[in-house]
């Protein structure tokens, strides 16, 4: 384990633990199993959207299209299913594929046509926004099918289904990042696309795949969120732009790409959710929450920055020996 490289991720978990301890002081009921469970469930939605975002950011990009990919999937699912469970069998795979396809378009725009990621995904986001608004006429109020509500709020042996799903996704993401050629290539492309190209890395395929994954997880989160709120509504995806990027940043990834891990993002998602849950207990408004979010982001990214880490140069560097010639 390389302390320096994983320091940002360790810091995110350290921050989370400190936050939990703090919480137990100011709001004693907070550490109960019930409350922790509901916090984890809420974090799962952020965590799932942020999964794709993590891959895109590690690859040196950013995905601003998640809000309306999420929203489109949610709205289309309720409209197509019409509260029926049976059609979900084909609707869910179809919408997941559609989300992936949107992501693929993003990736091709970025990697093949050289459109800056911010612009490409921003344009796709507003096009989707307009598209779903035109399609629904602006006022969809379909309720979510029972089956999807089971996925979002149901339990198996007392354990929330969505947490099982999140854990499964986290395992897959971790394997993809740490144990596959795709993961290796992604870090390489995010660190230096030129070096990756010179090393024979399939840069185009790697970038497109990252965005595709982001489209997929945004669509999945949208459908699950519908199950949680029991219905789809327009604008439900908007908060997830900020939270998905914030979770990745708090989780220790550099916005420039090439570093970070989904394991860190999980901590990021949990930190954001704990903060959200903590503030009502402290009688603070949603405005205060936004301020706290901003301060937390500033602190975490500062701690991970080189300027600050040079202040900690006196700390022992675990597992890192200086080469004699360096």
């Amino acid at each position: 384990m390389n302390f320096r490289r994983h320091r940002a991720i360790l810091l995110a978990y350290l921050g989370m633990i400190v936050l939990l301890l703090l919480t137990s002081v100011v709001a004693p009921g907070f550490l109960s199993a019930t409350h922790l469970r509901s916090t984890a469930v809420l974090a799962a939605f952020i965590g799932i959207v942020a999964l794709g975002q993590t891959f895109v950011i590690i690859g040196g990009g950013i995905d601003l299209s998640v809000p309306w990919v999420l929203n489109c999937a949610a709205v289309l699912m309720t409209l197509l299913a019409g509260s029926q469970n049976a059609p979900l069998v084909w609707i869910m795979p179809l919408l997941l594929a559609a989300g992936a396809l949107v992501g693929m378009v993003n990736g091709l725009g970025v990697a093949l046509f050289g459109v800056p990621p911010i612009i490409m995904t921003l344009a796709v986001n507003v096009i989707l926004q307009g598209g779903i608004l035109v399609y629904t006429g602006g006022a969809p109020t379909s309720t979510a099918p029972q089956a999807i509500q089971f996925l979002a709020v149901g339990r198996i042996l007392g354990f929330p289904v969505i947490l099982i799903l999140w854990i499964a996704l986290a395992v897959i993401a971790t394997v993809l990042l740490s144990k596959t050629a795709f993961g290796r290539h992604l870090y390489a492309v995010g660190t230096s696309a030129t070096v990756a190209e010179f090393s024979g890395v399939p840069t185009l395929r790697t970038t497109v795949l990252a965005y595709t994954l982001s489209g997929f997880t945004a669509a999945l989160a949208g459908m699950l969120l519908t199950g949680y709120t029991a219905q789809a509504y327009l604008g439900m995806g908007d908060p997830y732009l900020f939270t998905s990027i914030a979770a990745v940043a708090i989780g220790g990834a550099s916005i420039l790409g090439g570093s970070g891990h989904y394991i860190g993002t999980i901590a990021g998602a949990l930190v954001l959710t704990i903060l959200t849950g903590l503030l009502p207990a402290l009688n603070l408004s949603s405005g205060a929450l936004l301020i706290v979010y901003g301060v937390v982001i500033l602190i975490t990214v500062s701690l991970a920055s080189e300027a600050i880490s040079s202040l900690f140069a006196f700390l022992p560097r675990f597992g890192r020996r200086q080469s004699p010639s360096a």
């Binding site: 870090y187 390489a188 660190t191 230096s192 030129t194 070096v195 990756a196 010179f198 090439g258």
Partner: peptide, 10 residues
């Protein structure tokens, strides 16, 4: 440094 190595990787 720019074509050969990922300096921030192992």
């Amino acid at each position: 440094r720019n074509h050969g190595l990922l300096l921030s990787r192992s």
